[in-house]
């Protein structure tokens, strides 16, 4: 086999791993923030969290069916 410099391929592989795994982490983290902000926003507008109590589940189900 002719001697070619292997280093770019190794560096490229590790860079690809960094980009893909980093992208996943960033996407998940940003998504988490976005969802939390949306929830906080909704709570500000006076919505009760459905985890607030089991009694709230029944009306919600009706609401869902209507929707």
């Amino acid at each position: 086999m002719e001697t070619i410099n292997h280093l770019p391929f190794i560096v490229g592989s590790y860079a690809a791993a960094l980009i893909i795994v980093g992208g996943l982490v960033a996407w998940i983290a940003l998504d988490f923030r976005a969802q939390r902000r949306a929830l906080a926003d909704l709570e500000l507008r006076g919505q009760t969290r459905r985890s607030a109590g089991p009694r709230q589940q029944r009306p919600m189900e009706e609401v869902k069916e209507k929707a």
Partner: peptide, 17 residues
């Protein structure tokens, strides 16, 4: 994230109705 997303979705539906 997905659980939170579903909560947001349900609450939005509730709000809309």
């Amino acid at each position: 994230n997905e659980i939170l997303r579903r909560r947001v979705r349900t609450q939005r539906l509730m709000q809309a109705s």
